[in-house]
């Protein structure tokens, strides 16, 4: 046996733990995820659509706004033709629409879910931790917002502000984003509150209190990391849900507004022409939505499992 092999063996013997569980929780989670092929595929799909949303020019040279009525209703020509995904009834290029529609759709989803989680986690933690009147106010607010039907409220609010002047991608999604956030935070609040109630009386929380930790430290360092598990699992499904709801709002004519394109608008337009023989107008944007949603669902499930120390 050469000296080098011996050296390697000795090193392995000295650090038998390095490979499994020496690092942080996130490091461990990453190692677990790396070994699952469906996670890698889902990550690649999600990454692909993120790149599409960030750099649409890489994928199409057409302008989605530039529609030539002379080219109306061209079926998909495959890559190589002028309109790989075909054109819609007004002659707009489908590929450009799908590519440029990714940004408003994904941006809307991330803004809505991000804000909802932020509000929900904050309020849920406060309600569960302090109970008393804080909990009474927050819990009653949750119930009030839960009993208002989302579509009814969205219709009312969005038609109220329909005339407001907007500009840019952010401007065109701002109103639906605010309305969807307004009716999106309650679920997280409830989950987090229930988990905080369960976690806050555990011995390690008492131990931190005995050490003299402040309420903020106890919440941030001890209660939240152990109470937030269900929320990390909800986030990907929520992203999917927001894109879906955005499609519904667009279908009703109150979502992301034309001339901006979004997957929701494309789906809504495409479904009108579905029976008329132009199925591709619906299938391309719908396929993108389904792929994105599936990718986030798989990622979310895998992440939740990998971050749970009890499943190791």
């Amino acid at each position: 046996m050469s000296d080098q092999t011996v050296q390697v063996l000795i090193t392995e013997e000295q650090n038998p733990e390095e490979g499994r569980g020496g690092g942080s929780i996130w490091g461990d989670a990453f190692r677990t995820l790396r070994r699952r092929p469906e996670v890698i595929i889902a990550a690649l799909v999600a990454l692909f659509f993120l790149v599409v949303a960030l750099f649409p020019k890489l994928f199409t040279s057409q302008d989605p706004q530039h529609c030539d009525i002379a080219d109306s209703g061209i079926p998909p020509q495959g890559f190589g033709g002028a309109h790989p995904f075909g054109t819609d009834i007004t002659g707009c290029d489908m590929l450009a629409g799908v590519v440029y529609g990714a940004r408003p759709s994904l941006l809307l989803a991330f803004i809505v879910v991000g804000l909802s989680v932020l509000i929900g986690v904050t309020l849920g933690t406060l309600a569960g931790f302090y109970l008393g009147w804080v909990d009474t106010i927050i819990s009653r607010a949750v119930e009030v917002f839960l009993v208002i039907p989302l579509l009814l409220a969205a219709l009312l609010l969005l038609s109220l502000f329909h005339g407001a002047e907007t500009s840019g991608v952010l401007g065109s999604i701002l109103q639906p984003a605010l309305v969807l956030t307004l009716f999106g935070w309650m679920g997280y609040t409830r989950y987090v509150r229930a988990n905080v109630l369960e976690t806050k009386n555990l011995d390690y929380v008492v131990a931190a209190r005995v050490l003299g930790a402040s309420d903020l430290r106890i919440m941030v360092r001890h209660v939240l990391p152990n109470a937030i598990g269900t929320v990390t699992a909800l986030v990907p499904t929520a992203i999917a849900g927001v894109i879906g709801t955005e499609a519904v709002l667009a279908f009703l004519g109150i979502g992301v507004r034309p001339p901006a394109v979004s997957w929701g608008i494309l789906i809504s337009n495409g479904s009108e022409r579905f029976a008329a023989g132009s199925q591709y107008l619906l299938l391309f944007p719908l396929g993108c939505l389904v792929l994105t949603v599936l990718a986030f669902v798989i990622l979310g499930d895998a992440l939740r499992d990998a971050l749970d120390p009890k499943l190791k």
Binding site: L202, D203, Y204, A208, L211, R217, R221, H222, P225, P309
Partner: peptide
């Protein structure tokens, strides 16, 4: 001045903190 040792060693340690963080937390607080 007064500290507490718990009965159940399985619930008295935060499962998401490393041993160094658990023991060192006292220094972060004080």
């Amino acid at each position: 001045t007064i500290q507490l040792i718990f009965q159940d060693p399985y619930t008295s340690l935060n499962p998401r903190m490393s041993v160094g963080e658990i023991v060192g937390e006292a220094f972060a607080i004080h």
